[in-house]
């Protein structure tokens, strides 16, 4: 049964597989021409952060139909873990200009933060959501809001209520001038890391046995269970991966913005959630796409001189989509949701 469903999905794919990249490339080209290179790069960088966080929302929704409101705060905790790892453990305060040391430090920060966040995500799932697996849907939703508050208060207690500086390990002044335009390497690095992680995720979901288990679990949990899929393990892996991606987003946030505070997860979480809905909640490719679209809308609003309405523009988009296309751009019922 499971194999059959997957093959149906495969046959549907070629149609959109060709059309979608063309539309995306056309969109990017139009944006590039309209807003200019600097703003284009700003939007891509911002979109990378939103997309990584949005993936966690959409994966969890896809598999247990829970809007995990704590996910933005998992991202927030990741920014503090990044601060701790690069500032306290690696004892760095600013950019590292030696390339071997920089690479080593970045690998350590990403590896440690992603691992810690993956574990935290799995622990939250085990103790806050798994006991409610058979409860009415409202119960885990409220629990998620509770977990969100708990995470914020833990950080306030452990670190404090202020805005703190996160060491920007990747030198922010590394850039080349292309004509009049300044191209910072940091933005290129951030976008490359984020897009690679998203590509890896797609490969994982579509090519591995665990990925297949995730897809079947999201389609029909009981049937998958009958076919021998370990449901608890599959759901836990989903949380591991989603929270790990939020961990990567946290590292990127620290490198790019150089600061964080305990409330940073709320707004980013809300934007990422909007991105997930925009792309079609439950659809991983859609979430990534949605993240970039939200970023382009925000930056576009500034370019047009609507910065005063920036937030309103983004959330109006959410309302419009919920009313006219609740399944999102790519639809939430495609087979490749996780």
């Amino acid at each position: 049964m499971a194999a059959g469903t997957v093959s149906t999905v495969r046959t549907e794919k070629p149609r959109s597989a060709l059309a979608l990249p063309v539309i995306i490339l056309a969109f990017l080209a139009a944006m590039f021409v309209w807003m200019g290179f600097t703003q284009f790069l700003n939007a891509l960088t911002l979109g990378a952060v939103y997309a990584l966080v949005a993936l966690g929302y959409t994966m969890v929704y896809g598999i247990i139909e829970l809007i995990n409101f704590a996910h933005g705060d998992v991202f927030m905790v990741a920014t503090f873990v990044t601060m701790f790892v690069s500032g306290t453990i690696l004892n760095q305060k600013e950019g590292i200009y030696g390339i071997p040391q920089l690479i080593l430090s970045l690998v350590i920060v990403f590896a440690v933060t992603i691992s810690i966040m993956a574990i935290i995500g799995a622990v939250i799932e085990r103790f806050a959501y798994r006991p409610l697996r058979r409860a009415p849907k409202l119960a885990p939703l409220i629990t998620a809001i509770g977990v969100s508050f708990i995470l914020q208060n833990i950080i306030q207690y452990l670190v404090g209520p202020y805005t703190y500086n996160v060491p920007q390990l990747f030198p922010v002044d590394w850039a080349v001038m292309v004509g009049e335009t300044r191209v910072p390497f940091l933005n290129i690095f951030v976008i490359t890391v984020a897009v690679s992680l998203m590509a890896l995720l797609q490969l994982f979901i579509s090519r591995t046995r665990t990925g297949k288990a995730m897809r079947t679990t999201s389609m029909d949990r009981d049937a998958s269970s009958l076919m021998g899929v370990n449901i608890d393990r599959t759901i836990m892996i989903t949380f591991l991966i989603g929270s790990g991606l939020a961990g990567a987003a946290g590292v990127i946030h620290g490198l790019y913005y150089g600061n964080t505070n305990f409330q940073v997860g709320f707004q980013s979480g809300l934007k990422a959630f909007t991105a997930a809905v925009l792309g079609g909640i439950g659809n991983t490719a859609g979430a990534a796409l949605g993240g970039f679209i939200i970023a382009f809308v925000e930056v576009g609003a500034v370019v047009l001189g609507f910065s005063r309405w920036g937030g309103a523009v983004v959330f109006s988009l959410l309302v419009i989509f919920l009313v006219f296309r609740p399944t999102g751009l790519l639809g939430s019922h495609t087979g490749d949701r996780a």
Binding site: T38, A43, Y257, V264, E298, V303, G305, S307, G310, G311
Partner: peptide, 20 residues
């Protein structure tokens, strides 16, 4: 002249516009 309410944490677009 631009504006960003207190929920905004990404000022890169506004600053790029200012620099221009």
């Amino acid at each position: 002249r631009e504006a960003a309410d207190k929920t905004v944490t990404d000022f890169s677009a506004i600053v790029a516009k200012a620099a221009a």
